[in-house]
Design a protein around this nucleic acid. Structure first.
Lengths: 123, 123
DNA sequence: CAACAACCTGGAGTGCGCTCCAGGTCAAGT
DNA sequence: ACTTGACCTGGAGCGCACTCCAGGTTGTTG
């Protein structure tokens, strides 16, 4: 069982030390081990969970909804159906987001092409 | 030349009335026509510009950078090369963003599939 | 065992992008 | 003329997700 220091966990998860502490404070991270002196020690499981949090944040889930999800996970196996519902709902949002982003990417490329035609006409 | 009221412009651009006023205040919108009584009147050109602003916002460009871009547009045709550079730089960011989003979408689907296998195993 | 970096806590502060408000003006309908 | 709703201005306030800080503790290294 590999153990990671806070800064290793930060580096591997992409969250800052302050963000990790903040996530613990608001309940996104629970049962993080401590040394006798009170310093946090992260396990592989913790890193996996951080990876999921990273995924949810990167896909635009608000912190409040992540807290609801974390709460479900803490509440045990009886909540798996609810977790799936929450994640599927979120996945639909991600799909919409992706469609918008692709559409606007096209818009952006069109605008660039338009400017480049302007430049070509001028040369 | 069709003219639009502020609320029509808001509705067609997807920005709120307050946001339109805010954008004018910070220089993202300039030379918006007014009635003698001081009310704004938006033209088709304005709507087109708002569409571009919408595109840049939706793809995550910060307001400050949009202001720089708007400034270039105001400064005339000599700045087209710079505009292209700015937009291409942004387009690279969008590409990166898209790759991340797709990767995390996969992660999300994997997690959902994992939970669904859990549920199936339980049934 | 001394020094030093990494870590701890609670709480205040920050940056962004709006959003809301008070108090007034304008213009179309009756 | 009067009501009503859309609009105006300047400026304050808000929600989010961190980020920073002061002041103190820990634990590894030479």
């Amino acid at each position: 069982m590999i153990r990671y220091s806070p800064s290793e966990a930060a580096q591997k998860s992409g969250f800052s030390l302050d963000t990790l502490r903040y996530y613990e404070k608001i309940g996104l991270l629970s049962d993080i081990d401590r040394t006798s002196g009170g310093k946090r020690i992260f396990s592989d499981d913790d890193l996996g969970w951080l990876g999921l949090l990273r995924c949810l944040r990167d896909t635009g889930m608000p912190i409040a909804q992540m807290c609801r999800f974390a709460e479900l996970v803490r509440s045990g196996d009886m909540t798996i159906t609810e977790r799936v519902e929450l994640l599927e709902e979120h996945a639909r949002g991600v799909e919409t987001q992706l469609e918008l982003l692709l559409r606007q990417q096209q818009h952006l490329h069109d605008k660039i092409a338009y400017y480049q035609r302007e430049l070509a006409a001028r040369a």
